[in-house]
Each structure stands twice: as structure tokens, then as C-alpha cells.
Design a protein around this nucleic acid. Structure first.
Lengths: 339, 339
DNA sequence: ATGAAAGCGCTAACAC
DNA sequence: GTGTTAGCGCTTTCAT
């Protein structure tokens, strides 16, 4: 268990120079004679030297690590997160940016009060220099905790009211409009919607945008049933919609999983998609492709957004002004078979 | 950006004791007067002290962090990983064990050569004390690299030939047998299989177990087509099976995604599942539930296995003998509608 | 039971 | 261009 390896001192001795010189070579500082650089590099090779992170970060006050926090609640939280390709896209985007910046991305989960506390402690103790956080619940205490701890943070989605935190977000309202406009353009006369949980600002915005576009087209009061982002909740909502409004010929589901649930119910009830009822999803997740029929859906530029988060954080860590920034992204419609 | 907080020294001054005493309180060492403990705790409260990880780990030579490495290759690797609930279960299991052990789990991806190198460096530099690794490709260089770097490692699945690394694994052969026996018990007379990639030991074992059970029952030479773990590959394999062996009335797919693909093709070809063709999957992933019909499938006790991995690693870090251990787990059959 | 003091391995002034 | 040196904040003997 004694993994103590060679130190700078050892390399210095081996190369016949001082610790400082080796340090300069390791950190790529100029002002080192090319010949000596070579000497040192060979000594590093021979000794198998690897710098000690702890020692380095003790003096630089940086961990060169950023935490990617996925926050939410509930049992089997990780299982749910991993069932949703959405997070994969966020991770891909963030990781892509951080690599090459010599910043190690580490993913952590904050699914319960103790887990949250551990994560906050980890950051307060300097385990990472800052955090990118993706929050799944409306009233998530994590952003506030991180803010209070003075940890540099960038959020995916709007921060809770009153918290001045940097963030990136989608123009959800525009997304809702996109869906409505597409359904109308296809000739739907009785559009309805399966909404996201309405305690989420994003959920309210998608609904508002949808209604706004309908209103603008002279249609009022489209039926709306609230779902819970899962396939089952989408199926249940579709059943209620069908029972209460059998004339429905177009449905906007606030995410793809619910859209899939809706499609299943429709097909069980003998309604063809899209001929009898057109369905539009949201997210362009992988189920949009595997769903039968493949889903027409509103796509968020998630990777770009995640990369932007990472960039915002990096800038902040470099000492850019502390004013929290905000970046808003535009959704686009991906047309497939379902609408 | 200067997040320098209060130090042990500050707390000591505030409490009117020495650094050493504060350190003892923080680390829960006995032999500290209860009155003084209180004093110190209050001082910590007042100052908002948080120990500095770097300083601590510099002296203890431990990061109190373990890396959860997901290794594989390809574009949008993270996206693929996040589409598969399997990883969620691994993460859940490992995280559940590590919490409460005061070990921070950090998830990292090694999807390309540079990423692999970064991850290995991170560990060599003491960013984490050890690694739990889940490898997705047959010839993954990561385990070997970690072994060479002297990093304590526990693998999910069998290590490459000749590498003496601790690991947990499923008895895949038993899984294949379970599937075959179930199909036979249902009365299938013409069972076939869609296999996992045969360069994976697990893939070979599942097939071998399947064939073994059939042979034992007096049935030889069941048709087998190799798939690639995806829905599409399962669909393609099912097509080939149907074309070459129209009499097939039972299919064992080596994972649930392929089973789903098979079900889709069967239904498109007018075969009812399970009446005309029974289908058994593998993994008991979330698609097993959402699939129509829901899949009968071979379940791995993934959470238990992951927790065991973490436990093995923890033991190793505590200085347990360096002989790599191996733990083999038994699969079980989950019966749903498809077979 | 508590304190004093010696480093852990590294970077960054500061001399030369 | 290179070496010397002073810490970074903490744990841990060793005295007391």
C-alpha cells in the first residue's frame, strides 16, 4: 500500500540539477536550457516520476479539477440518470471542453441530503476548483449551498429565484412555440399537450410557449395534462387526454419519454401516429429515434450548452470578473415520422 | 478567486488551543477533553473552517477518493454510457457502499487514448487512491496501464488474460443455461440465439451455457447469429434467423436491447411474442420493462456486484494482502411476458 | 490530555 | 538560465 513514488528531489539528483529546474521542466516554464530540459526529461523517464497532486495543489491553491454535479433526489437516482441520454450529452459536451484545458472532470451525484453535504464539503475542501451543476428538481438546495460556500458554480438551467449564479439555459418558451407551430402547420385542429412538472420553470415555459403560439393562431384553451417525465406518466396522461378529449389530433409532450408513452397508448387505442394523432416530443433523446414511429421533437443543443458552461466556469476560475453570466440557447425542431 | 479560507491555525487561535488539538478534534481522535472538544467545535463553527484536502493528503498519502472508471471507445461515448441503465446500477451499488466510508466516489470516462492517459495520470498523481473499472471493449488497454502504474484496481468482469487483478464477475455460463432451460420448459422445440460479440469472454460464456443446456436436453446445433449489443443489431440478427430458420420458436438474445430489436422484427413479420416465438433477454435493464411485450430476462445482481467491487478495493486500500481476489455471482431469471 | 516541532512534495520569489 | 529558500496547511511523533 505504500505507493510513495520518486519525488522531484529524486529526479533532480538523477539529473544533476536542482528541484526548481525539474519543476520548471515539468510545468513547461520557459527559460530552461534545451540541453538541460532533455537531461531532466530523461531522468523523469528513468525514475518514472509523477508529480504529487496534493503537494502541488497545496501551493498553487488549485486542484485543476472541476466537478460535474448531478443533483436530484430519490431512490435509484443514479439508475434514473443513467437511463436518460440527456446527461450523456451534457457530460460529453463538458468533458470535450475540459480535456485539453488540463482540467480533470469528475462526476459526482448529489441524490440525498448526506450526499449533498459530502459533495459540498469536497468542494469547500478544495477537492475541485468549481462545479458545473445539473439540477433535476425544482427546489434543489444544492445551488444555494454551493453559493453559500463560495464555490465557483455554473448551472445548467436557471438558478432559483434570487441566486446570482452563472448559468446556461434553453429558450424553453421558444421550444413550446416551435412544437405548436409545427402541429398547426400540419393541419392539426385539436392540439393538446402533456406538460412537464409545472413546478419547474422550464416546464411552465414550454407550456406557455405552446399556448402562446396557439393563441396567436386564434386557438384557445388546448387541453393540458401534467406528466412526470417518465414513459408511464406520458402513457397515463395520454389516456386521460383521450378520455376527456377524443377529438385530439395532435399532442405536444414536454419530453421524449412521455411522447413515447403517448405513442404506445395511441397505438393500443387504435389511433395511428401521425395520421390520426400527430405527436411532438422534446429533447431529441435516443428514444426519439428508437420510438415507433420515430419522434418529431424539439432539440436542445445540449453539448454546446454544456461546453459553454465549462467555458464560463473556466473563465471564472481564471479570474474573470465575478459578475455571473447568463447564456440563452435556441431550440430547433427535428422532424421525423411522428408529426 | 482567492478562496483561501480559515486554517487550522486560525481555529486554534480562536479556541485558545494548539493546532494539534484542533486536528485531533477534527479527525475524531480520542484523548481529547470533552470540554475542549466543545470549545474547538464552536470555534470551527464560528470560523467556518474546512480542512484543506491537499494539505491533508500530502501527509496522509491518501486522497480518500476512489475513481469509478468507465472505459471504452468511440464517439459520443458518454452518451452511449448514459443510455444504458446498466451503468446506473453499477454506480448506485458502488456509491452506496462508499458513502459512509468517507470515501468520495468520482466518476471518470476513458473513451480515447488521451483520455485514458489523463485518467491514469490522475491516479498516479494520487488524485484518487484506487479505481473501480468497468470496461466495455474486449481489448481494453486501461487495466494493463493501471496495473503497470501500480494503482489498486478492481474490475467489473474478468481481466485480460494474464493480468492478476481483483475482480467481480457474473457466472455468464449459468446465465446462458438459465435462458435455455426456460425456453425448453415452455415447450420450445426450435430455440435459437442472438449472441453477444464473441470476442468478449462473457459473450462466449453465455453462448456456451446456452448450448450446454440444450445439448444436455438432447438438442444440438441451435442456430446462432452474432449481434453487437444494440437494438439494430438485434433486429438484423432476428431477420437473418427468420430467413434461415423460419421454424424458430424461441430466441435467447444476449442482452435486452437486442431482444427488443428481435421483438420489433418479429411483430413486423407477424409473429406473436411469446405465442409464436418466445424471447429471453439478458440484463434486466429498463428496456426489459418498457419493451412490448415486457421481457423475460436473465438478471445480473449488478448493484451487489458493484458494492462488492468497492468493498474489495476498500479492503485492499486498508492494506489487506495484495493477492487479487475474485468474486463470482449467480444470475437469476426474471419472468415477464415475452417467454 | 496537550503542545512543540518536524516534515509531506511542491512552487515561486528571490538571488546569483 | 539556474539554484536557494521559504512556505502552502496539515498530521504526527515526541515531550511534557
Amino acid at each position: 500500500m505504500d505507493r510513495r513514488g520518486p519525488t522531484l528531489e529524486d529526479v533532480a539528483r538523477e539529473a544533476g540539477v536542482s528541484r526548481a529546474t525539474v519543476s520548471r521542466v515539468v510545468n513547461g516554464v520557459r527559460n530552461v536550457d534545451p540541453g538541460i530540459q532533455d537531461l531532466v526529461r530523461r531522468a523523469i523517464e528513468r525514475t518514472g516520476y509523477a508529480p504529487n497532486r496534493a503537494a502541488r495543489s497545496l501551493v498553487t491553491r488549485r486542484a485543476d479539477t472541476v466537478a460535474l454535479l448531478v443533483s436530484g433526489a430519490g431512490d435509484a437516482f443514479a439508475a434514473r440518470v443513467f437511463a436518460d441520454p440527456f446527461f450523456g450529452r451534457i457530460v460529453s459536451g463538458a468533458v470535450a471542453f475540459l480535456r485539453g484545458r488540463a482540467m480533470h472532470p469528475v462526476l459526482m451525484f448529489a441524490e440525498s441530503a448526506p450526499a449533498r453535504q459530502q459533495v459540498v464539503d469536497y468542494l469547500r475542501q478544495g477537492g475541485a476548483d468549481g462545479a458545473l451543476v445539473v439540477s433535476l428538481q425544482a427546489a434543489d438546495p444544492l445551488p444555494e449551498m454551493l453559493y453559500a460556500a463560495g464555490v465557483p458554480v455554473v448551472l445548467f438551467a436557471r438558478p432559483p429565484e434570487g441566486l446570482p449564479l452563472a448559468h446556461v439555459d434553453l429558450d424553453h418558451r421558444a421550444g413550446g412555440r416551435l412544437a405548436a407551430e409545427h402541429l398547426l402547420a400540419r393541419g392539426c385542429r385539436h392540439p393538446a399537450t402533456i406538460t412537464a412538472p409545472q413546478d419547474l420553470p422550464a416546464g411552465r415555459d414550454r407550456l406557455a410557449g405552446f399556448q402562446e403560439a396557439l393563441t396567436r393562431a386564434g386557438r384557445h384553451g388546448a387541453p393540458a395534462v401534467e406528466g412526470g417525465f417518465t414513459v408511464d406518466s406520458g402513457a397515463a396522461a395520454m389516456l386521460r387526454l383521450l378520455d376527456g378529449h377524443p377529438e385530439v389530433d395532435g399532442v405536444f409532450a414536454a419530453n421524449d419519454l412521455m411522447a413515447q408513452g403517448a405513442c404506445q397508448v395511441l397505438s393500443e387505442r387504435g389511433r395511428r401516429v401521425p395520421e390520426d394523432v400527430a405527436v411532438v416530443g422534446f429533447d431529441d433523446s435516443s428514444v426519439a429515434v428508437t420510438c415507433r414511429p420515430p419522434l418529431t421533437t424539439v432539440r436542445q443543443p445540449v453539448e454546446k450548452m454544456a461546453a459553454a458552461m465549462a467555458e464560463l466556469l473556466a473563465a471564472r476560475l481564471q479570474g474573470a470578473g465575478p459578475e455571473p453570466e447568463r447564456l440563452l440557447f435556441r431550440p430547433e425542431l427535428v422532424v421525423r415520422a411522428s408529426a
